[in-house]
Design a protein around this nucleic acid. Structure first.
Length: 283
DNA sequence: AACGCGGCCTGTCGGC
DNA sequence: TGCCGACAGGCCGCGT
């Protein structure tokens, strides 16, 4: 399975980066793929030289490298973006897009097979003006994702629930994998219209989102120690997926063959028996 | 204004 | 065998 970073994976990468490069100083930067940067490559390289990496934060699926002089490097891994730290001079993998040379002789590399990832260097005060972050929804946690909020925005949305859950402006951090998982856990059909969900279904969905994301973060967290210098690899959580990637397999709940359809332009796996549309009374 | 959809990317895989 | 289209998918930007 390919590495597809959703919130738990990004959190794991963040933890790894904090262990490896928090407090390090950037000597120089090489941009090998200028398209992924929000400003001209030479400005990017010039502004980053000499900066200290104070810490790495996360918001939704975005990594926020907090730097000295009130700068933040915002990094989105998209599909397959990975970070690794190696000694300077060691062989670089194919598709290395950006190299941060550190003053201690190591280098932090960003590599991305799909070339989809994005980086933006901005002042701290401008982070939440960036496209995407300017309208990002609450984190999927007990404290931030309130039932009343969910009920209110879901009541106003007429799209299919799968599309709603993928929308980062409604709830931050869910991607295709965890959407299929929480819908299966909640026994909700991915094509059910969002405003048609009952209070009980909203309650179940909320509880499963919070529980699932927390469990995935915990699982990835436990594998962190097995990595010495690369934090882009997936953890163990793929072993706990019930819906995603299980097309044509038996539903773990009822034994029915799982089906794959397209919803909101995304591959969507679900159980046609456990996850019926409202009003579908067939077996 | 909310929402759908094409485009961005490259590696992999199935079909002929 | 080799080619080639379909597919994978997060998010931006545009059109309705």
């Amino acid at each position: 399975m390919a590495f597809m970073p959703e919130l738990p994976e990004v959190q794991t990468v963040r933890q790894g980066l904090n262990k490896l490069v928090k407090g390090s100083k950037i000597k120089s930067v090489e941009v090998l793929y200028p398209k992924m940067i929000n400003i001209p490559a030479e400005d990017f390289e010039k502004k980053l030289a000499g900066k200290e990496i104070i810490q790495i934060d996360r918001r939704g699926k975005y990594l926020l490298f907090r730097l000295s002089d009130d700068l933040t490097l915002v990094s989105h891994l998209r599909m397959e973006g990975k970070y690794e730290v190696q000694s300077e001079g060691t062989e670089r993998p194919k598709h290395t897009n950006v190299v941060f040379h550190l003053t201690d002789g190591r280098e932090l590399r960003y590599k991305d097979t799909r070339m989809f990832g994005k980086m933006a260097l901005v002042k701290n005060e401008d982070v939440y003006k960036l496209s995407g972050l300017n309208k990002i929804g609450p984190e999927p946690t007990e404290q931030d994702l309130k039932f009343d909020y969910m009920k209110e925005i879901m009541h106003k949305s007429h799209r299919k629930i799968k599309g709603f859950l993928l929308d980062q402006s409604k709830i931050a951090g869910l991607g295709n994998i965890y959407c299929d998982e929480v819908l299966w856990l909640s026994k909700i059909n991915p094509e059910q219209l969002t405003n048609e969900l009952s209070d009980d279904e909203i309650r179940r969905l909320r509880a499963n989102i919070i529980k699932e994301i927390a469990a995935a973060i915990k699982d990835h967290g436990t594998t962190v120690h097995s990595y010495s210098n690369a934090y882009g690899e997936a953890g163990q959580f793929q072993n706990q997926l019930h819906a995603y990637g299980r097309k044509d397999e038996k539903c773990e709940c009822c034994g029915t063959t799982m089906e794959k359809i397209k919803v909101a332009q995304r591959g969507t796996t679900f159980c046609p028996k456990c996850q019926k549309l409202h009003g579908d009374l067939s077996d």
